[in-house]
């Protein structure tokens, strides 16, 4: 899986490259519009992450170019929070998703995975982790072939975990993933805990293993021991 990151801030790009490399992607990074145009011309990517504000122009131009090239790449826009115009413009010309700065790498990772899944309409449209198989489009989960009955939030949570397997996921990031902007309305961390408890119970009830590890005070990690 090839991912192109178009981001002018070196420190940010480094983080993305490092996190995504670790998740099994092959990442390339350019820091300006010109090199980006060159790259998309020469190579094909599964997903392209575009920062809207670049030193030599707008990231929207890259999206435009990709669309005229009829590229199959998934596109995720990165932009400042609350700049609705950018968001609408980007989605209008064919971007698949939109993420605002500052974001969690785990969230970006989950978004990339989701975008790539949506782009590739092959039969392999399922995610497997040990005995757990997730069918994202049907909102189905099976444990060793047995169906697991989950609520929407539990499903989202499990998918988020599996997308970021073996990584520490902070509780803030989970809360934001599940509730978005509303996360700070209430003590949502307590709620994550109760969702997690239910998820664990349901998986164990039909013979699955508990892969959710608590990282004390910080968050959780979905990992095979």
């Amino acid at each position: 899986m090839n991912v192109l990151i178009i981001e002018d801030e070196k420190a940010l790009a480094e983080n993305m490259v490092s996190y995504l490399d670790h998740s099994g992607y092959h990442c390339e990074w350019v820091d300006n519009l010109n090199s980006a145009q060159e790259k998309i011309w020469s190579y094909s990517y599964d997903c392209i992450i575009v920062d809207i504000t670049l030193p030599d122009g707008s990231g929207l131009d890259v999206i435009q170019r990709l669309k005229t090239m009829k590229s199959k790449s998934g596109i995720i826009i990165v932009s400042a929070k609350n700049s609705t115009e950018d968001k609408i413009a980007g989605l209008d010309i064919g971007a698949d998703d939109y993420i605002t700065k500052p974001f969690d790498l785990s969230e970006l990772n989950a978004r990339i995975k989701s975008v790539i899944r949506r782009r590739s309409f092959d039969a392999q449209n399922e995610i497997t982790f040990q005995e757990i198989t997730i069918f994202p489009y049907d909102h189905l989960v099976t444990i060793s072939g047995k169906p697991l009955n989950l609520t929407k939030k539990e499903f989202d949570l499990l998918l988020y975990f599996v997308s970021n397997k073996s990584r520490v996921i902070t509780k803030e990031s989970i809360a934001e993933h599940l509730w978005g902007d509303d996360m700070d309305m209430a003590d949502s961390f307590d709620f994550i805990y109760s969702h997690l408890k239910n998820l664990r119970k349901k998986i164990e009830e039909i013979g699955g293993n508990d892969y959710i590890q608590t990282v004390y005070g910080i968050g959780y990690k979905f990992i095979k021991e």
Partner: peptide
């Protein structure tokens, strides 16, 4: 905005490292 994103992501990266519980906290 950018420095904030860097701090956030760098600390997120650090959380992935095999550090002591105290350091992670």
């Amino acid at each position: 905005q950018t420095p904030l994103a860097i701090i956030r992501n760098k600390s997120e990266m650090l959380l992935q490292e095999p550090l002591s519980k105290k350091q992670l906290t």
